[in-house]
């Protein structure tokens, strides 16, 4: 097992898990999200190939209701 940061929270995941594996574990459909790994945005094609390392920072981003100007940084969504 190893520790990574996902959307600002620390999580323990299986060593060598791929990004796709992480999304499956979190029950997130990959086609509607973007993934940033240590500040680099991944192509969707990389999800299956890219394995996480201890201490990696992962951001999983999607779309939320919004018009304009809302403040705050990275509030979570459904």
């Amino acid at each position: 097992m190893m520790r990574v940061h996902v959307n600002g929270e620390q999580r323990t995941v299986a060593a060598g898990v791929t990004v796709a594996g992480l999304l499956t574990e979190l029950d997130i459909r990959p086609e509607r999200v973007a993934v940033e790994l240590n500040l680099n945005i991944l192509d969707r094609g990389e999800f299956e190939r890219r394995s996480l390392q201890e201490g990696d920072r992962v951001e999983i981003i999607g779309f939320i209701g919004g018009g304009a100007g809302q403040g705050g940084s990275w509030p979570t969504i459904g």
């Binding site: 999983i60 999607g62 939320i64 209701g65 919004g66 979570t76 969504i77």
Partner: peptide, 17 residues
């Protein structure tokens, strides 16, 4: 128009826009 935010990873029961 939609905003870009972190996906809620703790409560997956929430629906998506």
């Amino acid at each position: 128009t939609v905003a870009v935010r972190r996906v809620n990873i703790t409560d997956r029961s929430k629906e998506n826009l």
